[in-house]
Nucleic acid binder design. Sequence first.
DNA 1: GATGAATGAGCGTTCATTCAT
DNA 2: CATGAATGAACGCTCATTCAT
Lengths: 191, 191, 191, 191
Amino acid sequence: MSKSDKREEIVRAALELIAENGFHAAPMAMIADRAGVGAGTIYRYFENKDVLIGELYKDLEEKMLPVIQEGYDINAPLRERFLHLGTRILRYFIENPLHFRFIEQFHNSPYGVEHRRDKILGEKNGCNIFRELFEDGLSQQLLKAFPLTILFALSFGPIVNLARDHILGFVVMDETLIVAAIEACWDSISK
Amino acid sequence: MSKSDKREEIVRAALELIAENGFHAAPMAMIADRAGVGAGTIYRYFENKDVLIGELYKDLEEKMLPVIQEGYDINAPLRERFLHLGTRILRYFIENPLHFRFIEQFHNSPYGVEHRRDKILGEKNGCNIFRELFEDGLSQQLLKAFPLTILFALSFGPIVNLARDHILGFVVMDETLIVAAIEACWDSISK
Amino acid sequence: MSKSDKREEIVRAALELIAENGFHAAPMAMIADRAGVGAGTIYRYFENKDVLIGELYKDLEEKMLPVIQEGYDINAPLRERFLHLGTRILRYFIENPLHFRFIEQFHNSPYGVEHRRDKILGEKNGCNIFRELFEDGLSQQLLKAFPLTILFALSFGPIVNLARDHILGFVVMDETLIVAAIEACWDSISK
Amino acid sequence: MSKSDKREEIVRAALELIAENGFHAAPMAMIADRAGVGAGTIYRYFENKDVLIGELYKDLEEKMLPVIQEGYDINAPLRERFLHLGTRILRYFIENPLHFRFIEQFHNSPYGVEHRRDKILGEKNGCNIFRELFEDGLSQQLLKAFPLTILFALSFGPIVNLARDHILGFVVMDETLIVAAIEACWDSISK
DNA sequence: GATGAATGAGCGTTCATTCAT
DNA sequence: CATGAATGAACGCTCATTCAT
């Protein structure tokens, strides 16, 4: 197994265990076991458990962003851009329930305290797409005159809830429902 | 300190510690300490930690429900009813940040697994108010023809996010913003 | 409830709990509960748990001795005297399984360390009957020339085992078997 | 210290502490201490305390059986076979007082409940030697017509008592006394 | 570099004993 | 006197982290 394969295995094992049963069910020894490496080996790749979790989170961000942005046309009409991003995110969560479950757990854990803010969509990285989208919308007066934070809340609050409900089996989000739900979100932020 | 004072102190201490820093920062000994009681004393009031957490959650539910329902007029127009409940819930969270933080933590913890669904607004108690509200709206064709789960998601997703953002200081939800935000939620569910 | 009734209740409760499930299953609070008194009350009658256990043991000794000696004729032939005592003890244990179970537990517990020697049959009290019996037998050269300790072991070892096996249901000691078994013990010590 | 040395040290430490002062005087931390290992280390070798105790018991059984059987001639006369086994067991206990004390404690403890019956001499393993011995004796009509349980009690009751008395210093069982005592046991079971 | 046995601080919980009522 | 709520030391056990191999 190559060096980066090992890192990959560790991260994958951690993701699975945490997503499936929460942080409390993912001791380092169990992660090592499932990754097929020695317990001490993890510490060659990650300084400690906090760092492992943090990097796992960053990995997921990095996998998610290109998928969401794929085919995104910054010059399309605002509504279309919103629907593109919103449905892509929701679809991504639904298709990657382990990622979603981990991200949720992460935000409500000691590991995620300093990430509390939704970095995915916030100021970090190059991923200001949403910010730009909202700012465009505000300046064009197509959106209600809310602070960005509120526009985020109105958009992502439902998305996260819908993803959770789908994953837990409370509702089946087929393509039609996905689009309709994101359109509803649009109604909440657009004038 | 009277018997019921002691129970109160324990519950309060647990609430504070968990709300402030999460479950991992609330070992029984620390809860006891902050409550000003001996470690063993907790076990006179609560069979074990799980039970303590569970009862704390129930306590909060019980405190919250009457506040939300106060002044609720089931015969008012649908929009008004929605705004009443939505703004009340959001205000409650904002005014009781410890309650909010605990409830959030609880839902994303091993303690809250069986409560995953938002019981507050779900089928339990007499608090089917929201369900009734949505069912009324659907039958009167005032709401978009979504499953209840999605209507819940569109309503509560933003509320929870807004409460969190306010508590974390990312936005200041004054009365005007509260009402405007809930009105925006109404836009997402109404035809 | 009179003062001595209370003591009686406490001792009875302790006996039952310990005999039924061992010392580990008899915390003071449970003893108090079953005795129908407050936990603190026990300490008015017994300085501490050790003393309670010790006095319970003494109580049982005192109840047992007269039953064993009843009808004992010191002038009867040696064999008859042995059979009298041996069968009486065995019968007593069989008819009072709680007493037996407690005594057994007691001897193999921290509480009974200083009582290790079989006081019932040893030098204490007026109960030197057995000692006298053996000494008579030795001087009359009816018994094998063993130290007293060995004569005790040959006599009581089987009795205790038989009682235990009966109580645990491994064998049913009816009157015929009781007598035959004690006669067998006699064979082991008599010339 | 090698891996199996460590297991050995833990088992030895547990044996010593329990034999010397009983289960109550052998908390895991103390066992670890005396074994010269960390507290957590014990759990690499034994799932929990119950398992440690249980395996210690099995270890002792396994050490004891071959010693007892050594030189045993199944074709020798019955009396000789009985004396062989009886004296060997008694000698073993006398020479291994820690083993004896532990086994005694074990049988009268919550750990040993399911072993209540003397498995050493009962049906388990290949060690039906005693059972076979008694069954042979019964079929040849050399033994009194007792149930096996009673023959066991008549044989082992005294042995256990003699071992205890020797270890506690109440009597010194030299070779002559050992043989004479076991011969006395034989008298109790033989016709 | 990789390992996994070893560690020990820290957890949730119990219970003999005390003492205010 | 009797009570039982309160106590806190001590228990069995877990797990992030280290380090000899």
